[in-house]
């Protein structure tokens, strides 16, 4: 961090100083003659664009593995036949906890035998019902272990509908591939499809910030001393 005047002194005391300046002047001239800009800028752009493509297109493909569900379930078909909407199958237990994806026994109530034409149903009955093997469903909305999520408070107390968080999955006729983050093991639906983190629908993502956003708006609680929002232990365990 010597100052310019020190440097002058240093350089002038140095007999080689002038040579040095002359030499890099020379370099300058040579480059000027050949027109330096072109390739340098081109390469910059190549590097820039290449890593953007890698980052936005290739990277997500590498990061997430795609898995197929063991049975391609048709939500729309089932919603038509049951009386009580989602809660017909996705039930609450007596202790107020939420059972999530139905167990085999629940499905087997109707599907002891193959009922329809669907090859998927045939697989289901033959591979699972007949063998009394639980279906290893991949749960899109599976939250990490550190999260305590109460369906009871959201559905029963606050009266929220399923669609707000899960989207119109009830209208789907087939199950999309389950995408798993290879590094974290999370379902992609938690972090969101959009790599840029853009959210269009309330169900696009289920990150902490999404929970917090709604909580702030809906509950207005300020119980946390640290953040003046809902306290950490509301959703964490």
């Amino acid at each position: 961090m010597s100052t310019p005047d020190d440097k002058t002194k240093g350089v002038s005391a140095d007999t080689g100083g002038e040579d040095a300046i002359a030499s890099f002047k020379g370099v300058d001239e040579k480059e000027q003659g050949e027109g330096p800009g072109g390739f340098v800028i081109l390469f910059f752009i190549i590097g820039f664009v290449a890593s953007l493509i890698i980052g936005w297109v290739v990277f997500p493909k590498l990061l997430y593995s795609q898995k197929r569900q063991p049975v391609d379930f048709n939500h729309a078909l089932h919603v038509e036949t049951v009386d009580n909407g989602c809660e017909s199958c996705h039930i609450f237990r007596e202790d107020g906890s939420y059972a999530g994806v139905p167990k085999l026994a629940q499905c087997a109530d109707c599907h002891q035998e193959v009922q329809g034409e669907s090859p998927e149903e045939k697989i289901f009955v033959e591979e699972y019902v007949a063998k009394e093997k639980e279906v290893p469903w991949l749960v899109y909305s599976k939250q990490p272990d550190c999260v305590f999520f109460s369906h009871s408070v959201h559905v029963k107390l606050a009266g929220m509908d399923c669609v707000t968080c899960h989207g119109p999955i009830g209208e789907s006729t087939s199950l999309k591939p389950y995408e798993e983050n290879r590094l974290t093991g999370y379902s992609r639906d938690i972090w969101g499809k959009s790599m840029a983190g853009i959210k269009k629908n309330s169900w696009d993502r289920m990150k902490m910030d999404d929970c917090a956003e709604c909580h702030e708006k809906e509950t207005g609680r300020k119980s946390s001393v640290q953040t003046d929002k809902d306290a950490c232990f509301v959703c964490h365990k």
């Binding site: 050949e34 390469f43 910059f44 752009i45 590097g47 290449a50 890593s51 890698i54």
Partner: peptide, 23 residues
């Protein structure tokens, strides 16, 4: 015009800049 080490340097800088703007 020729490709010299400055071009590679430039490629690297461009790559780094793009990387920073990628996820």
């Amino acid at each position: 015009m020729k490709i010299d080490r400055r071009c590679f340097l430039s490629l690297g800088i461009g790559g780094a800049a793009g990387l920073a703007l990628s996820p």
